[in-house]
Every structure is written in C-alpha cells, then in structure tokens.
C-alpha cells in the first residue's frame, strides 16, 4: 500500500456515513426526487471508497470504476426522472406513499 496523508480508515468511515445517510434517505423521505437523490448518495459513497482504495493500492482500476459509476448513475437519473414524471404527472403533490395500487 502507498503512504497516504489522510489515513485510509478515515475515508472508509466518511464513505460509510454517506452511504447510511443515503439508505436512511430512501427509507425515511417520501418525496420521490429526494429518494432518487439519496440513491445517488449511496452510489457516490461507493465512488469515494473506490477512489480511496485505488490510491491506497496504487491501482487505477478504482478510478475507472468510479467514472463508470458516474456514467451509469447519470443514465439512471435520466430514466428515473422520466419515470417519476410519468407516475406523478396527474398528482397534485408527489409522495411515494401514494403509489400503492398493488400491495406486495
């Protein structure tokens, strides 16, 4: 492993905090846009972890993976927003609890 000015464990701690903020956001918030943002937060927590480990191991694969994730997350956000628009077009206010025609 390469020496790092900030210890690796700090990056891991920060990214896990971000990840769990994302998970909590998905579980707690009722606005579909905030839910989508929380999912992006989960993805970006993983990105941070990839970058930290790429630096620690001196392996560029982590950087490339992070770029890949950013690209995919952009595609996912585009499709996600399109679906949110089609679902909530006729609704007065947007709330994920209103999407319950079917009960699993």
């Amino acid at each position: 492993m390469l020496p790092m000015s900030v210890p690796l464990i700090d990056y891991v701690a920060l990214s896990s905090v971000i990840f769990f903020i994302g998970v909590a956001g998905v579980l707690v918030r009722r606005n579909p846009l905030i839910v989508l943002m929380s999912i992006e937060l989960m993805f970006n927590a993983a990105n941070l972890l990839f970058m930290a480990f790429a630096r620690a191991w001196g392996n560029n694969a982590g950087h490339i993976f992070a770029f890949l994730v950013i690209t995919v997350a952009a595609a996912e956000a585009a499709i996600g927003l399109a679906i949110v628009v089609t679902v909530f077009r006729t609704a007065r206010h947007v709330d994920v609890d209103d999407v319950s025609l079917m009960k699993g």
Partner: peptide, 26 residues
C-alpha cells in the same frame, strides 16, 4: 407504478451491491 417501484428498489439494491464491490476492491 411497477416501473417506479422497480426503479427505486432495484437502484437501492444496486447501491448496496456497488458498495460491497468497493469493499471487495479494497
């Protein structure tokens, strides 16, 4: 509704999986 549910739940699952992959990479 199916598209919306699938989008949200599947993305969350992808998020968990991706975070796991980052740890495996580490």
């Amino acid at each position: 509704e199916a598209a919306f549910k699938y989008l949200i739940l599947s993305s969350v699952a992808s998020g968990f999986m991706l975070y796991g992959m980052a740890m495996l990479f580490g």
